[in-house]
Amino acid sequence: MIVAGLLSVILSALFLPGIILRTKSIASGRKGPGIFQPYRDIAVLLKKDSVFSKTTGPLFRMAPAVSLATVICASFFIPLSRYGALFSFDGDFIFFSYILASGKFFSIIAALDTGSSFEGMGANREAFFSMLIEPAFFILMSTFIMATGSTSFKEIYENFTVTGNHIVIIFSIIGVLVLLQIALIETSRVPVDDPKTHLELTMIHEVMILDNCGFDKALIHISTYLKMAIYGLLIFNVTVPYNLGIIQQSAFLVLTQVLFAVTIGLVESFRARNKMNKNPKYILTVSAVAWIAFAIILIMTK
């Protein structure tokens, strides 16, 4: 069952973007497209021919595929509760975080390869904001390591809820909060970014991929959906007790993922996007919240 984690990532990735879309259209009182619209869009993209800028070189062509490869590789590390991950070792979350960073590196330089000032701006913002979010994940993992004494995703989650300690709920709450924020930032959603603004100057991810089309753009979308699913699974793992039966686990999996998607959809429907120069503060707050969790575990255990 070691593929359980990977399978659930793929399944979540199939439904999450559609659910977000439905939530948004229902919230804004529109009829809206069906739940599989994102994948219909991808199918259209795959049929399209390609236009490339003459300025771009081989790096620009490679980058979407390499970025997707990093996300696929990262999804191998995600466990599903007690069914372990495909790869699991000491400090696998370090590899997880760094391989995702490699993907970002490639998408940033691909944007710079176009020589466009728009995409340069997007590249800059992506580099800047992902730099700021970096510590939050590590502080959160440190907290979990302190709480469980283990150093891999699988073992951390195995020991997470069976410590017999009701205080674990604090870490679940803070974990969900921090992971949700990281997910929003990493998958470029509101309030830090807005996936729907195509001609605003205040965007990050979309402005980086203005010159991508057809096949490459499809890959980029798939990477984003997978990334979202990965964070969804991480959230599932910190909330749902490890020792439930398989039926309950599956039910909770569906429940958490739907809730995750609906939350993103609702945030996007009712919350305004941040002003760009307020974003650094907003992102650093996530680290601060993670830091609170760490302080709690320090006080409790030491």
């Binding site: 795959l46 399209k48 021919d49 390609s50 236009v51 490339f52 800028s53 003459k54 300025t55 771009t56 062509r61 595929a65 176009t114 020589g115 466009s116 728009f118 995409e119 203005l210 010159d211 057809g214 096949f215 490459d216 890959l219």
Partner: peptide, 16 residues
């Protein structure tokens, strides 16, 4: 990607 793009038309133009 290479196989896929072999069957598609690829055009080159200026950056958007």
């Amino acid at each position: 990607r290479y196989l896929h793009l072999k069957n598609k038309k690829v055009v080159y133009g200026p950056t958007w």
